[in-house]
């Protein structure tokens, strides 16, 4: 029984710039794992590689024991591996409920499934999840009119609507009002505990990630620098140096 997500020695370069080199990351089912590192250390590139946004140069990626590094973005997403974006992305011209409904997993790829109407269950689920993130009152508003923080919550609830097994979150607290951060952390933990969604989180806010994650990987200069429990990472000399800019 191997890990839910198994990234093995992945490398990726853009032209001459090496963004990732020999990175191995394992995420077990049910965990919350953190991914930290200074700006430009290759965290988002690793996310993009995992979800199939671009082909990787070397290494292999397995999800639920199946190899996914040759698949495209939608195929991987349909396997139950979803990501959110650092620059929050929602469907700005549609209402919150519509954003939620279209995020429901599609029953098959046939034309019938594509043209099907929404089910009662989907509509109820959308309402529940919007309530879960506290957006129920705003469900009929145009999503593009929401504040940035609310859009972030909406994007998160859209991901939940899809019912993924593993969710990659790219800086969920960036740009959010500090008073709302605790609430968001609570939601993330409940999503993990109640809905059984495994989380892999990129985060710059150390207080958040140290409290949230059970294990943390630290990247620097495109390579894996350290791995361990939050307490170990906090004490790790190399991690501190990397964040303070020493080499």
């Amino acid at each position: 029984m191997s890990a839910l997500l198994d990234v093995r020695a992945v490398g990726k370069a853009f032209g001459g710039v090496v963004a990732n080199r020999g990175i191995s990351v394992q995420v077990e089912e049910g965990e919350i794992v953190g991914l930290i590192g200074p700006n430009g250390s290759g965290k988002t590139t690793l996310f993009n590689s995992i979800v199939g946004h671009h082909p990787i140069d070397e290494g292999e990626i397995y999800f639920d024991n199946g190899r996914i590094d040759k698949l495209g973005v939608p195929e991987i997403a349909r396997l139950g591996l979803l990501r959110t974006f650092q620059q929050t992305r929602i469907y700005g011209g549609m209402t919150c409920v519509q954003n939620m409904l279209i995020s429901a997993p599609q029953q098959g790829l046939g034309v019938a499934a594509m043209l099907a109407p929404h089910t009662r269950a989907e509509e109820e689920r959308a309402g529940e999840l919007l309530d879960f993130v506290g957006l129920y009152e705003k469900r009929h508003l145009i999503a593009g009119d929401l504040s940035f923080g609310q859009q972030k919550l909406l994007e998160f609830s859209m991901a939940l609507m899809n019912g993924p097994r593993l969710l990659l979150l790219d800086e969920p607290t960036a740009g959010i009002n500090p008073t709302l951060i605790n609430g968001l952390m609570d939601r993330l933990q409940r999503a993990n505990a109640e809905f059984g969604i495994t989380l892999l989180v990129i985060e710059h806010n150390m207080r958040v990630i140290m409290n949230l994650a059970q294990r943390i990987y630290c990247l620097a200069h495109g390579e894996l620098l350290a791995e361990g429990a939050p307490s170990e990472i906090r004490e790790d000399r190399r991690v501190i140096d990397a964040y303070l800019g020493a080499t």
Partner: peptide
Amino acid sequence: ARERKVLR
């Protein structure tokens, strides 16, 4: 499409 650029 074969060599997509960085995405944030």
